[in-house]
Design a protein around this nucleic acid. Structure first.
Lengths: 339, 339
DNA sequence: ATATAAATCCAAAACGTTTCGGGAGGCTAA
DNA sequence: TTAGCCTCCCGAAACGTTTTGGATTTATAT
């Protein structure tokens, strides 16, 4: 494999000059540049990124720590769409992505910082981890530039991108209220998710705004899983037949709730209106299709990458970005039919 | 950031010895090893992967060239599931993954070989490219170890993993025949896919085996897209009302075909039986759920990674792996109702 | 003609590892 | 006693770049 040294020998110049020629420095004459580049081409030279990284102490790569990159995460391709956005932006800006496989047992022993420092990534994007995750506490203490998705940590070296979850949840609940519903339950995720807190906030505030009473026993956790949500919803609906609508903190859980309703012979949306959150691919394909709060997952990834790279360049811009959501009305919600 | 040199200074040994101690070489005494490791720990040392790679000429990373890692590829999370499998295996075997963003315009100028050589990946896995892709021809000529998914190229440095597509297609068609269908059309992908050729082969051979006539005009291409498949199927069904079943070379296209049928007021499965291919996530959630040929996408990824890494270690094993498929019967197929 | 500035080029150090080829000292066997 | 063999250690080169701090030549101004 041809190196810069081979080129130098070939054109009869120093390796310094060759390097500077290839990198278009001002202090090498146009003719020399041209000659050097021709020889480089002829020798089929490609620069050694590794060697460059070593001396420059920059790798032009950003690490990806995504906990959902495993078998179970497949259903809700949230992570995948985010990844797609990250990938596009990174590509546009000349960065490569390295996936850390945190799933393996060996790697699990390593700390977040070790992982990043060994691979010498310039920065990291983290998605899909719980607020209780061991990695998270490490992030704030380490000084590795980092962008979190849906976890609001803000320091000199870490930023985040998220959506307006309070507003999103309010939109969902207000939609139900406008349809005439007053008995609205809430299927939340779990306590270790920032978005859960915020969506709860939005749910409560929408009820309050409408002057509706709050039933604490109607606020349940489905762990963001369809299976769990189904079980929980089954009990909830069985014990509280007065409920006419459920707002779910994720589409996947909404699917679980629909299953539970079906088992209880409750018709969606005639007897029970359901609105989800995320607008995952399944939402529009399932029957009945899901009314949901849509968030632009691709954009979240894209913005995360852009934010991180801007932080790497100069650390002056604010370290957070807030994206909008919007209500998508489909078939799982309908006017409350007063009997 | 602490280096091996700092450790050497601290313990009063040469950097050679420190290096060999950390790597558990036989020629350093147990006591010294222990001392070195303690100091390393104390100094919060983490090895510089970059420097190591430079001298060892191995990066312990494998490159990923997946053309579907863009917005459109999201529907069919085939790629994602494959990626998940690759990620797991790579993690287990101590390799990291780097995603090449071939989507960007800048990068598009670079050849496959340049891409890999610059990043100094040890090997590459390629998925989701057409047989007409410029990258493909480069693969065979370059000597970079490479594993292709669903493209049968076999040389000293390149291998592949795929499923038995002929058999898979036969299973699908035979299922339809067993249900009493005789007028069976085939919605194929496009001519630039190896799997399309094979599935066509299976389709034809199943018909032949059953002594059924072959209608060439019933074999159409849907480009693996639901939208295209819908258009094509609409015409096909309109012009050939005698068709009672369609075998589709992908689930996504099957969805398109269902849409077309619905528009034409043809009921699935009562009037038209449909079997897909892939068993993507949507297949089981959609109404009617899809009878399909299931392939283990996770396993394809896992095997691809394993194959590649085994090729890197020693180049003696055969460079190909064939996976099984199986028929999953759901709601989109039913007995032919003879009128 | 001389001093100054501009245009080109280069030697050598640095980045953090691994590894080759040895070398010193102690032990064993003849 | 001596030769040979372990055991444990080290100096220096190598990997392929970038960058620093001049050096040399050529053009320009005085």
């Amino acid at each position: 494999m041809a190196t810069i040294k081979d080129i130098a020998k070939e054109v009869g110049l120093s390796i310094t000059t060759v390097s500077r020629a290839l990198n278009d420095y001002y202090d090498v004459s146009p003719k020399t540049k041209k000659r050097v580049k021709e020889v480089a081409e002829a020798l089929n030279y490609s620069p050694n990124h590794i060697a460059r990284s070593l001396v420059m102490k920059k790798t032009k790569t950003i690490g990806l720590l995504v906990s959902d990159l495993m078998r179970e995460g497949v259903k809700d391709n949230f992570t995948f769409e985010v990844l797609t956005g990250i990938n596009k932006c990174a590509g546009d800006l000349g960065y490569d992505l390295v996936l850390f496989s945190t799933s393996s047992d060996k790697q699990k022993e390593k700390t977040y910082t070790q992982l990043c420092r060994e691979r010498r990534v310039d920065g990291v994007i983290i998605s899909g981890i719980k607020t209780s995750d061991r990695y998270l506490t490490e992030v704030v203490t380490s000084d590795i530039p980092c962008v979190l998705i849906d976890i609001p940590v803000n320091s000199n070296s870490v930023g985040f991108v998220t959506t307006d979850n309070v507003l999103g949840a309010m939109k969902a609940v207000q939609h139900l209220i406008e349809l005439g519903h007053t008995e609205i339950a809430f299927m939340n995720g779990h306590d270790f998710a920032y978005v859960s807190k915020k969506r709860l906030e939005g749910y409560l505030s929408a009820l309050e705004k409408a002057g509706l009473p709050i039933h604490n026993e109607w606020i349940v956790n489905g762990s963001f899983l369809d299976s769990t949500a189904e079980k929980v919803a089954y009990e909830l609906l069985q014990n509280n037949p007065e409920i006419t609508a459920i707002f779910c903190a994720s589409d996947l859980m909404a699917l679980g709730v629909i299953k539970a309703a079906t088992k209880l012979n409750i018709k969606v949306p005639e007897d029970l209106s359901i609105v989800g959150y995320d607008d995952i691919l399944l939402a529009s394909y399932v029957t009945p299709s899901l009314t949901t709060i849509s968030q632009d997952k691709y954009q979240m990834g894209y913005q995360a990458a852009e934010l991180l790279i801007s932080m790497l360049k100069d650390n002056t811009t604010p370290h957070q970005r807030l994206l909008n959501t919007h209500l998508v009305i489909r078939e799982s919600t309908s006017l409350h039919n007063k009997q």
